[in-house]
Nucleic acid binder design. Structure first.
Lengths: 305, 305
DNA sequence: CTGTTAGCGCCTTCAG
DNA sequence: CTGAAGGCGCTAACAG
């Protein structure tokens, strides 16, 4: 494989000039630049990531940390990140952290600290203070999609408002008996996504003096469906979901879409902006969401009320 | 961030010894090793990927090339790869190549050639001879999940046999009028996954002298569902799918499962084996598949025959 | 078993 | 605008 001095020789310039011409950093006359580019192209020269990174301190890669790869939301956000990053010539290094604490430590204490990445994006990773601080010590921009974190630049959906929006939609249709199917929040932090959604639900129910009902379920198809079966009588009551899953459209499920792919793009852009010198914006950026009425919810009918 | 000579100083040894103790390559007495490990731990030392990679030629990362991130099959295979790789301390670098030829070239000609990865795994990427050759010139193990490729180590599902298996299942139940819903293979290579499945279908139908019927559809929910709607009369005929999608279970869809996650694990293990010096096995390894009867198919009934 | 010594391939001052 | 030269942080012979 051709190295930088092959190119330098072929173009009749020094390696310094090749480096400048190819990276665009530092002055090079148009004529020389063209010669260098032509030579590099002819030789099929591609800069070595390791050498370039070691010498420059820039890795041209962004780390993405996810709790799951094979769940719709995460892979969709990841696709958005990938889109935005590839455009700018960055590679993506993937860190999947499972529930296993030992593995999690290895990712935070070892993998992420190998100086392989210029920035980090975390997706729905709930971190304690130690972990957040550790990310900070990486000395690179960190953008987190998920619960607000005062230590990091954060992109957050107002999950409480999401919970309210979904509930209000049903209330507006005349419903009063509304059941919340969601994570059993007794084990979650009060600031977790499920807890906040639930809180929005409760607030809205309280506001109209209706009694909130809960049916615990995990974030799986089986869990959700089992809970729905337990709750719902046979007469197909209105259902509203939260997320914008592609299948929601297919089922005609009314939902609060939160534009997963767009979240990824925004996170990537925020990370790139900080890399370009933009001020880090610790605290929260706000992510859009929107009620999408696809027909699974309708006005209450006399028979059921 | 602590460097290797901080550790060397703290442990009272040379950097060479630190390197040896930490990497496990080369002899180190147990006593010194312990001292080094303790010092490294105390200082929170993590080797710089760039420096180590430059000096050793090993990057401790594997590249994974996928056509889509946000489709069930690919993210599931990816999860399998991730599992197997993280265990061994490897990072994953992700390359998503869309249909855009310019972007595809950039991935093959630039990103993949940055010497950032010790091995490449491709998932369902159909490559022409140029691209395959290019991967070969990387000088690293390449494992491809997908159509057999004589130039690369390949893990392949016998898609023709899958087509036959699914069709035979229906035939065995007494059905004779069977419609194939799948990609319009006039545009695909004869060796593509959809073409092979279809061929298996045709062969089986031919064998019993039944007329194969086709309904074109792309690999999307909408496409498949539209095709099914066009074909199927209202009386809920038997349906069989191919893939093992998690939702198949939920729908009670009989399917030919191909264990996506396991495919990823096997690919990762094959790549690691080659990295450990195992002979590359150009040509094909064979991937398992299995009929899973979940009830969406049943014997033909008199009324419909 | 351990230390010394060259680089790995590129970037980036510093001169010119 | 361009070239020379010294590292970036680590590894891999090679001695000892």
């Amino acid at each position: 494989m051709a190295g930088i001095d092959d190119v330098a020789r072929a173009a009749g310039v020094s390696t310094a000039t090749v480096s400048r011409a190819l990276s665009g950093r530092g002055p090079v006359s148009t004529a020389t630049r063209d010669r260098v580019l032509a030579a590099a192209d002819r030789l099929g020269y591609v800069v070595s990531a390791a050498a370039s990174s070691l010498a420059s301190g820039r890795a041209r890669a962004v780390g993405v940390v996810v709790p799951f790869l094979d769940r719709w939301f995460f892979s969709t956000v990841l696709a958005g990140i990938s889109d935005a990053l590839v455009r700018e010539g960055y590679d993506i290094t993937l860190y999947s952290v499972s529930a296993d604490p030992a593995e999690r430590r290895r990712v935070f204490d070892d993998h992420l600290r190998r100086r392989r990445i210029d920035a980090v994006i975390t997706i729905a990773i709930e971190m304690d203070a130690t972990e957040s601080a550790l990310l900070r010590t990486l000395g690179v921009p960190v953008v987190s999609i998920g619960g607000p974190n005062p230590l990091l630049t954060t992109l957050t959906v107002d999950d409480r408002a999401v919970g309210r929006l979904a509930t209000e939609h049903l209330i507006a249709l005349g419903h009063r008996r509304v059941t919340h199917i969601g994570a059993d929040t007794t084990t979650d932090a009060a600031s977790s996504v499920p807890a906040l959604r639930r809180r929005g639900f409760v607030e809205t129910m309280d506001a109209i003096g209706a009694a909130p009902v809960f049916e615990p379920a995990d974030f799986t198809i089986e869990g959700g469906s089992a809970a729905a079966t337990r709750t719902l009588s046979g007469d197909a009551p209105p259902i509203i979901g939260v997320d914008g899953h592609e299948l929601g459209r297919w089922f005609g499920l009314t939902t609060v879409d939160q534009f997963a792919r767009g979240q990824g793009e925004r996170a990537a852009e925020a990370a790139l902006a900080e890399l370009d010198g933009a001020d880090p914006a610790p605290g929260l950026g706000t992510l859009p969401f929107e009620l999408v009425d696809r027909g699974s919810t309708g006005p209450v009918d006399a028979a059921r009320r």
